[in-house]
Design a protein around this nucleic acid. Structure first.
Lengths: 196, 196, 196, 196
DNA sequence: CATGAATGAGCGTTCATTCAT
DNA sequence: TATGAATGAACGCTCATTCAT
């Protein structure tokens, strides 16, 4: 936060502004003002407005992706891996509410630039879930009648919607652990083989 | 489809255009052309661009809401009620892909007008889930340690994301039953009290 | 001037503004104000700023070209034909000073769009000179050692520069006849075979 | 070319860039890059963009003017003087195509700064023609019914347009002598008294 | 002298909305 | 009701110019 260079100052400002107003309603001048730079300065670091949004994703998702991958690498228990994924995701969303908002909102935008990006970086992030589930099925821990692709959507959709509690509603009192526990309890019971 | 009046012709056109281009990228003239009316005509039926989006929701969600409420009224088994909700939602999303796209995409927009609406009509629709879960808990069918509000988000988020298979990806081959089954299997196992 | 439609009102205004300020210094809002329409109205009739300039040429040069071709069609005396060309050109430049200024100034602009145009419409206009000279050479009226292409440039350059007397300097007192006579006297003596 | 100082390096670069892109389309950074200096450095030597253009003229035209005046000073035959003027001008245009382009294109710009300049330096250069013609009339070599001012425009316009063969068209094969001969043949026959 | 990052005024263009017909 | 030409506010982006280093 302190010795930030212009680039990251703008990224931070843009994340905030996009979170607050949405991509289309946000003005370049809003971002510039928030970053305390001139409008023109932004174009020294980014090609255009879309490029800023892209960079917000790239850096934001990239960080989470990197950290998550590192944590998962040291693990080979599918259940524990899902737990890590869920907790990491919710922690990140809780911590950087602006980024969370941007991901939740703008990722849905019907826009070629964004969609194109989504297919690359973001689907790598959600794809982790698919991989874990397949891994768990091979290990005989997760039920074989579960579709890895569909259940990836089920878990990620749940996570995405559930993480809105910290942004949109009056339910901000939930802790990450509490929320993670609910999601994991439900999802794991749902996909694990009966173990009684 | 035939004897449509202007109002619903515009709604249908707007749903299509919003689904294809997104709210902000869509132009009034696009909708007018799609509806085969003059630009100005639109303003005889709607106050402004936001109002069109609002109406698209109002009518779209309203129909699903109405039908779902009717079906649920004749039922008092929480499990069956969730099944009905899930199947009705997915069927609607599958049937009217344009509406599905609009709901999925635009609902996320951070915009006062839409948010304000969401709080009224849409949360009534998702609120049904909360009610069913509480009802099930009272009946002792659903575990008491489940947060109705959180699990509402978990189920709706899962449904929302899962219904994207028919719009965005190459996975359009899934049937409604197949998808519903996966969601219900996982979610119900997750929230039901052990019944062995 | 009276029952002008929007299109020609804008053309007229643009001609005036381009003549006064030059293409690059002219603002769309200048043209709009001059034409007494809103800025946006201009884009109902033209694609962009270049398109306006193009149209100014197209229509301006087109008219002169048309009239000149018609007059020349009824004639087969090379000397008389050159006389007609010179007088018509100077009359047009004198009459529509704004168009004259635009042609003289902007035609020189290094710009792909304009250059491309020049190669089509405008060179058809100056090409008439080449044709007349070749015709005169075939008839044995003009000297055979004259390069039609170079002398086309010589005559057109002379005409172009000479017609500036009515726009730029204090020499506006010259009559078209006077100026035409000087150009013709010099040029015809220069290219005709000795006839003593 | 080697031990050029910054000032002339910038002038040379600007001439090249203006010739290629035109004054308005050229960017200061283009010139800086071409001159291999920083953008800011240009402002140590010139007040602004117009000032650069002005200097390009000043130096370019100045050189031609100086050389032409020197050559003419040693001569008192009007016909020979015109021949010198024509050949010198065409040689200069042929040699420094960039300067030629700039003069041909930008001199036409309707712009106060440039116009103001044109009235001083450039008209001194074209004024030479007027002087020679008046001199020739006094000597009885040139016809007395020729307007010195108009014929100055006629000759200069011809020269200006004719010198474009080396820049714009596919006719670059013409030699200076060939072109000069055509211009001189036509113009001299046109203005000289009958000499049979 | 030299640099080049930073500035911010300015403009072309779009498009939701209006209104005369 | 219906039209669609006209409006003009608003914004992304450029680039001449400045100035701290």
């Amino acid at each position: 936060m302190k010795a930030e260079n212009k680039h990251s100052k703008i990224i931070t400002a843009a994340t905030k502004v996009f979170a607050k107003k949405g991509f289309f309603t946000a003005r370049i001048s809003d971002i510039a003002k928030e970053a305390k730079v001139a409008d023109g300065t932004i174009y020294l670091y980014f090609n255009n407005k879309y490029d800023i949004l892209l960079s917000v994703f790239e850096e934001g998702v990239g960080k989470i992706l990197g950290k998550t991958q590192k944590l998962l690498a040291a693990n080979d228990d599918p259940v524990e891996m899902l737990r890590i994924y869920v907790i990491e995701h919710l922690t990140a969303m809780r911590k950087n509410k602006n980024l969370a908002e941007v991901i939740q909102i703008e990722l849905r935008q019907t826009n070629k630039v964004i969609k194109q990006y989504r297919d690359k970086k973001f689907s790598e992030y959600t794809g982790i879930i698919t991989t874990i589930i397949q891994f768990g099925q091979e290990k005989g821990v997760f039920r074989s009648d579960i579709h890895p692709d569909l259940s990836k959507r089920i878990l990620f959709g749940a996570l995405d919607e559930v993480s809105r509690v910290w942004n949109v509603t009056l339910e901000t009192h939930y802790t990450v652990e509490e929320v993670a526990d609910q999601v994991l309890t439900i999802f794991l019971r749902g996909i694990m083989v009966a173990n009684n």
